[in-house]
Computed example of a mutant assay.
Amino acid sequence: MTFADSSDVPTDIRSALRANCADCFALCCTAFGFQRSADFPIDKPAGTPCSNLTDDFSCSIHDSLRPRGFRGCTVFDCFGAGQYVSQTLFGGKSWKERPDTSADMFGTFAVVRQLHEMLWYLVEAAERATLSELSEPVNQLRDEILRTLDGDASEILACDVESIRAEVRRTLIEVSDEARGGYAAAEASASGLNPSADLVGRDLRSVRLCGADLRGAYLIAADLRHGDLAGVDLLGADLRDARLDGADLSQALFLTQLQVDAAQGDDATVLPPALTRPRHWLG
């Protein structure tokens, strides 16, 4: 997909914000670096190919990433930036074919990924603010990002992504406040369920969660089994190994596939329609 005519882009552009690895030059496996940790068994400098990358830009251990210690790869989401940079911005010419473009390609990928992630959130914000006065600023931000993406690689690299992110953050907080306004979230707040809260390993099964603002909260290994997360703002929350068995996240705010992939759940976990059940939940 291209974003050539942002004026005609429908509110739901999620199809372009989903990764299509077949049309990408393995940018996530080359552009970014990682250090040996619980998520990666080796060190890899940024701008270098992963040792598991094959000549056709596929992963030689794709089906066994988790048992081999590459869990970080399984929870990464480029929000469709990989194929957009590879095919649209660089015309289908890989960094192998054109080594002189590799630095610009990798740098552009990092920026486009951020812009695509913000678009993902703004799509949901637009759906929630349809009948609200917030609809106009949400759509204006969406269109600003789409216009930025319509530029070439040099223009995208030159954009003030931090300024755009700050505007998006303010707008998403306003949408969240309005969406959560109908919930009585006093109990959640009294239980320490606040933005950026440290809830690592916390058993939250007996806490009323509806309407809680958990933006940026640390929910690593937290127990949310069978919880109702309607109206819970999960923007940027760390859900690594969070227990979501039987939980209902269908009406949670700003949940991404990346967060779901990092968590633990089962067949009874209810997800928003835009997200899919991870393979490791089915095993």
Rank of each mutant, 00 (worst) to 15 (best):
V123R: 01
L134N: 02
D143V: 10
P137V: 07
A129T: 07
P137E: 12
R128E: 11
V112Y: 00
Y121P: 01
L131C: 10
V123W: 00
L149A: 08
R128H: 08
I145D: 00
E127M: 09
L149C: 08
L131A: 15
L119H: 01
L122T: 02
M118N: 14
R147C: 12
M118I: 02
Y121D: 10
I145K: 06
P137W: 02
E124C: 05
V111T: 12
Y121F: 15
R147Q: 15
G151R: 14
T130P: 00
E136W: 09
E117K: 15
A129R: 00
L122V: 08
S135C: 13
E127K: 08
L146P: 08
P137S: 09
R128I: 10
Q140W: 00
E133Y: 08
G151E: 14
Q114C: 08
R128L: 15
L119K: 05
R128G: 04
T148Y: 07
R147K: 15
S132R: 05
E124Y: 06
V138R: 06
R142Y: 07
L115I: 05
R147M: 13
N139E: 13
E127V: 04
G151S: 14
R147A: 15
A126L: 05
L149N: 04
I145T: 06
E136D: 11
R128V: 03
V111R: 10
R142A: 09
D143Y: 03
L131S: 14
P137M: 08
L146D: 06
Y121A: 11
S132C: 03
L131T: 14
R113L: 06
D150K: 14
E124N: 08
H116I: 06
S132A: 06
L146Y: 02
A129P: 01
D143N: 15
H116R: 04
S132D: 09
E144L: 12
H116M: 10
N139C: 08
Y121N: 11
Q140E: 13
V138D: 06
D150I: 02
M118G: 07
W120K: 03
N139G: 09
N139P: 00
R142W: 07
A129N: 01
W120F: 12
Q114T: 13
D150F: 09
Y121M: 10
V123E: 11
G151Y: 04
S132T: 11
S135L: 10
I145L: 06
V138M: 02
L141W: 05
H116T: 02
D143W: 01
L146I: 10
A126R: 11
V138A: 04
S135H: 14
L141G: 06
Q114K: 14
V123G: 04
T148E: 14
L131P: 00
M118V: 04
E144K: 11
I145V: 09
S135Y: 10
A125W: 01
M118S: 13
E133F: 09
R142T: 14
G151K: 12
R113K: 13
Y121E: 08
L131H: 14
P137L: 07
V123P: 07
E144T: 13
L146S: 07
S132N: 08
L115Y: 03
G151H: 12
L119V: 05
P137C: 07
A110I: 12
L146R: 05
